[in-house]
Amino acid sequence: MPVKDLEQLFQQKIDAEVKIEPRDWMPDAYRKTLIRQISQHAHSEVVGMLPEGNWITRAPSLKRKAILLAKVQDEAGHGLYLYAATETLGVSREETINDLHSGKAKYSSIFNYPTLTWADIGAIGWLVDGAAIMNQVMLTRTSYGPYARAMVRICKEESFHQRQGFESLLVLSRGTPEQKEMCQDAINRWWWPALMMFGPSDSESTHSEQSMRWKIKRKTNDELRQNFIDMCAEQVKILGMHLPDPALRWNEARNHYDFGAINWEEFWNVVKGNGPCNKQRLAARVQAWEDGEWVREAASAYARKKQSGNKAA
């Protein structure tokens, strides 16, 4: 069949909401877009373990330590599902990881911000996991089957993380004056980077339109961001805190919150590697990988020995 017809057939399936599976024919660009997006997502889960991992040994109670450990462990699990989803598109996990380490592949810029106080752990749960959920709930209906299915599992855990993060902030918001201050300060620092997680405005976004046609995405960056703002603007009231945006106010006519201008210059700088922790995050991943090389080698050498031993026996 000529490619043109294949493409038409493919688009018909998409339009009819039939999931695309690994063995189905798909346009090269669709495959490439998915590889880029899913591997970027996988890397974000794994790099995201670092800023939160930063507080595991210092968690303020045994209960909080256990919750945080379990959360970071969940994120590692998300990374695994997503690397597996990337593999269904014909790219090995090793290749994907190498692209992260060489700087070729990106991960969510939010993880290039530092976790300075304990309140940051709550703020990440509430705002960062919260923003991730907005995106991921949409992706449970994405057109590529393995990605959609990975998202269903992940979303359940992410909403749990968000609730725990919020609850942890709630305790701070009702605590001592120092804790309240810590809580507000964390919200101040994470709010704008969290809004940037949805990516550039629709007018600036290069991949958006085609991704919508292929139903990889079903909502635009700006729509998702607006939903997130509307949700947080209400939730922050329960905390008795405020969002650091003087322009934030309810707009009756739009039925949405209006909000102030996002600093896109900062966004692009962090994307390009100039954020507060870009160097450290990547260096930590590379070091873990390099330090682990002898372990991986020994494990496969041992497995080979056992295998040839079994054959001989």
Binding site: G53, L69, G292
Partner: peptide
Amino acid sequence: EWCGHGPVL
């Protein structure tokens, strides 16, 4: 202390 730094996920 290993969390996030292990030799393989």
